[in-house]
Amino acid sequence: QNSSGTQISNNIFLFTGSNVANMNLGGNSGLNFQNNLTYSYNSTLDDLSGTNNLNNQDPLFTNFNSGIGLNSSSNDYNIQSGSPAEGAGTDGNDLGVFNGGFPFDIRGYPTELPYLTDFVIFNNIISAGTPLNINIKANANINN
């Protein structure tokens, strides 16, 4: 709230509500939007202030269902070939969370570290100097 002088770049702002017309910026008059895309599945949005913004353009996600939650792991926020977000970033990369091949995981798992899938403590009551017996299972996050 009440931000000023803030540069907001290379994003995709997506709305699935039926009564959204603008970003409701309130007292944030000093925001500078550059190379962003806005899209609403149910209404027309007001244009963003700033330069090189793609207002009211479908980002053409690989797989997106506007009827389920935006954070659903069944949505695929990679963009299809021919998307207006393709190459539209300030750096010439794509807009959105996968900008420039960024290793983003919709589930929130770390991208460069394995993540735990199972953690069992076999002897949870021990005295000092006694070994703690555990079993840990983890999966790699990136498939390469």
Rank of each mutant, 00 (worst) to 15 (best):
F122S: 08
L113Y: 08
D76I: 01
F98A: 10
G89P: 00
I106K: 13
L70N: 13
D76E: 04
I121Y: 04
F122H: 15
D91N: 14
I136D: 03
F122W: 12
I79V: 14
A88Y: 01
G108P: 06
S73V: 15
T90I: 08
T117W: 10
N71P: 00
T111W: 11
S73Y: 08
A85K: 04
N135F: 15
P84Q: 04
S74W: 12
I79K: 05
P131Q: 14
S72M: 03
G96L: 00
F104D: 12
I126M: 06
G96Y: 07
A88M: 12
D105E: 11
T117R: 11
S73L: 05
Q80W: 03
P110Y: 08
D76W: 01
N75R: 01
Y109K: 12
A85P: 01
N99E: 00
P110E: 12
Y109E: 09
E86Y: 02
N93I: 03
T90N: 15
F102P: 00
N133P: 02
A88N: 04
S73Q: 13
V97R: 14
D94N: 12
L70F: 04
G87D: 05
G82C: 09
S72W: 04
S73P: 15
Y115S: 07
N78P: 09
G82P: 02
T130I: 14
E112A: 09
A128L: 15
N93M: 00
S83H: 06
T130A: 14
D76N: 15
N133Q: 12
D118W: 01
N135Y: 14
E86Q: 15
N78A: 13
L113D: 12
G108N: 05
F122Y: 15
V120S: 12
G96C: 08
G92F: 02
G96S: 02
S127Y: 10
D76Q: 10
Y115F: 15
N99V: 06
G108D: 10
Y115E: 00
D118G: 07
I106Q: 13
Y115I: 00
V97A: 13
S81E: 11
S74R: 13
P84G: 07
G100F: 04
G101E: 11
T90L: 07
L132C: 00
G101W: 02
I106F: 08
S72Q: 12
P103M: 05
F102A: 14
N99M: 02
G108K: 07
T111H: 14
G96V: 01
I125S: 09
Y109T: 13
I121C: 01
E112M: 05
N99H: 14
T90C: 09
L116R: 05
I136Y: 13
S83C: 10
F102M: 04
Y77S: 00
E112K: 09
S72D: 03
F98T: 01
P103T: 05
I125H: 06
F122C: 08
P131G: 01
N123I: 03
G89A: 08
G92I: 07
N99S: 06
L132R: 01
R107K: 12
Y77F: 06
